[in-house]
Design a protein around this nucleic acid. Structure first.
Lengths: 228, 228
DNA sequence: AAAAATAAATGATATTTATCATTTTCATAA
DNA sequence: TTATGAAAATGATAAATATCATTTATTTTT
């Protein structure tokens, strides 16, 4: 099994501030999971007993609302860590984490994380920074969901998806989502999302290639996301 | 000027884990502010150089969306602390904090907070817990805003307001909000909020006494907030 | 490769919500 | 105290969005 000390992924997240000894400890205690597309890594309401570090693959973080609809709160990919919020607040997991494609994930036991937070001030601060940043993002999202019409939210979401997942060699946003998942991201009915996407294609703003989306006119999308 | 060591407010927030020496240091360095109704304590986009601890009074945390509308993200009151997210992530303030009524607020310089986070593991953990909890709340709010219709969001909001601010001696929710502020909380037009409140009154679920709201049938509201 | 299942697309319509216009109520200061 | 302005309320209408029904396309299974 590969070792944390040599793992390239850690350069991109809070684990970069770990000492060599801490990395060795993590490496000794970690387990590696293979999550297949559609499977859950974490489930809303469950207790969690460690931190997940995504090596590769893509996932969605969702919340089930009381009316049974799924809301996608955030997308994740290699380098992201999951579970820190729940570990720190000692609350159950607040979101479902589901694989959008096969994922490799390392699991580090809770006690190692807690110990390291106490010992390593820089690590502690990095984790705080991540959560603080996520809180800011979530607040922004609340405002957007509450104030922006569906069309603007879709435009915003397409830009965000390209930023998160980048583009493939055809220029398409490098993630495959169903229309339903797009609808659940912007908080609208699937049919509404389909119609708006069709309109964007008709207007030459995007193209729909196989299961992926190609942004043709990003500045048009940007304007649209701001209500112009 | 009163001293942090003797302040009763600190029992209700992260400051309760401070040592006597730390409290004395905070007390020596703190300044006390009097924020009048309508005035801003923090402004979105500005840098912040300390932590605010609310002694008394009530406030709203808002965000201005690109179309110029105000979204209320959260309400605050005595015992709450403000600015921790910005201090930790070293980012500008993400929200405006505005007094809903006159407030007394203590300001503790950033460096004292940072030093204490490094020295006092329990304080550090408490701050993390607060932010983690807020992140969970914000994620829930995203889902509610995106998935629930306006009527359900209003019902939810009324219950939340009563939980946060409690009731006065007439049984009314103990905060005065304009219709516009209620609309900006649930993310709808002022007229829509007014109409829904009038309907709730007509149906005997709430009463509108002076500038305050009295919840008459909480279980009806609860059902309504869940779509029944 | 055909059949079955799932996802995407489209149309018709209903419902929700916003906007604009006007009136009424309430608070505040000249 | 009345004049002035703001907030609240109400009506009429328009726009946005959801729902339901149906068709077409795409995957998956047999």
């Amino acid at each position: 099994m590969s070792k944390c000390e040599q793992c390239i992924i850690k350069r991109f997240n809070a684990l970069k501030s770990l000492t060599h000894d801490e990395l060795v400890k993590f490496s000794d205690h970690k387990t590696t999971l293979h999550i297949k597309k559609g499977e859950n890594l974490m489930t809303e309401g469950n207790a969690i007993n460690g931190l997940y570090c995504i090596r590769d693959g893509k996932g969605k973080l969702t919340k089930l609302s009381t009316n049974g609809k799924e809301q996608i709160i955030k997308f994740v990919k290699g380098g992201d860590i999951l579970g820190q919020r729940s570990i720190l607040s000692d609350e159950p997991v607040g979101l479902n984490a589901t694989a959008l494609e096969d994922m490799h994930v390392c699991f580090i036991p809770k006690q190692d994380i807690i110990d390291t937070i106490k010992d390593n001030g820089q690590f502690s601060l990095n984790i705080m920074k991540i959560i603080s940043h996520q809180l800011n993002q979530a607040n922004t999202l609340v405002s957007q969901m509450a104030q922006k019409p569906v069309k603007e939210r879709l435009a915003e979401t397409l830009i965000t998806l390209e930023m998160i997942f980048g583009i493939d060699n055809e220029g398409c946003i490098d993630v495959v989502l169903t229309r339903e998942e797009i609808a659940n991201t912007i908080g609208t009915a699937t049919e509404s999302a389909i119609r708006l996407l069709s309109n964007l294609k008709k207007d030459g703003v995007i193209d729909l290639i196989n299961k992926k989306i190609l942004i043709l006119d990003k500045s048009a999308l940007k304007n649209m996301s701001e209500g112009y």
